[in-house]
């Protein structure tokens, strides 16, 4: 194939293949997404202030907000199922902590390389284990670029917040997402 044809074929993909994104959901869906996310994040916040006040290595991390989008806002998505939700965070946390343990002692190298390595490896591991969960990438990143408290927590970070946080969101999702007749969760456990 000529170079010109290869190029035109390549750039034709830039145009996109699909017209329009999925339609807007009903207002009732919007409300239930709101309720689920509010209860889920509020629960994690409350437990965090009770158990972990004064430390940054607590229960509440930014990536849980992203998980809430999937678990309460797109509950049917394969990315939002329990295997992905808990597995994605835990495995990504392992990768993130591992990257910091490996590279953290080299000033300069750690700041430049560790974040990319952590996120990319987390994605690869989630792919390989069928636990792809986008917020996992953030969990891996936080393990590397987080505060001294988080770095000091070491492997505890895998358990708290990366294990317990998503498990709490999962519990709330089971309760809230199954209340309305038009919703169900999960599609599959494993």
């Amino acid at each position: 194939m000529s170079l010109r044809r290869s190029c035109s074929r390549y750039f034709s993909k830039w145009r996109g293949t699909t017209r329009g994104s999925p339609p807007r959901v009903s207002s009732a869906e919007v409300l239930w997404s709101w309720v689920g996310a509010f209860v889920g994040i509020a629960l994690v916040t409350w437990l965090n202030t009770r158990w972990f006040s004064g430390t940054d290595a607590g229960l509440l991390i930014g990536s849980l907000g992203a998980s809430a989008v999937l678990v309460y806002g797109a509950a049917r998505s394969p990315l939002a199922q329990p295997r992905n939700l808990v597995g994605g965070h835990v495995l990504s946390a392992l990768v993130g902590v591992g990257c910091w343990q490996l590279l953290g002692h080299w000033p300069g190298v750690a700041e430049l390389l560790a974040p990319g390595l952590a996120v990319a490896s987390a994605i690869a591991l989630m792919h390989l284990t069928r636990t792809l969960h986008p917020p996992g990438g953030a969990t891996a990143l936080i393990a590397v670029i987080g505060s001294e408290d988080i770095h000091a927590a070491g492997l505890w970070y895998v358990l708290i917040p990366a294990g317990l946080g998503p498990t709490l969101l999962l519990g709330v999702a089971l309760v809230v997402n199954n209340l309305p007749a038009t919703r169900r969760y999960p599609e599959t456990w494993w």
């Binding site: 293949t17 699909t18 017209r19 329009g20 994104s21 999925p22 339609p23 959901v25 009903s26 009732a28 869906e29 806002g73 797109a74 509950a75 049917r76 998505s77 990315l79 038009t182 919703r183």
Partner: peptide, 22 residues
């Protein structure tokens, strides 16, 4: 066509994260 798929998606409550082409 896209409209067939989008119409079906509107009839299923909840957000479906799949493109019409997929």
């Amino acid at each position: 066509d896209d409209e067939d798929v989008l119409d079906a998606m509107r009839q299923i409550p909840g957000y479906l994260d799949i493109s019409t082409e997929d």
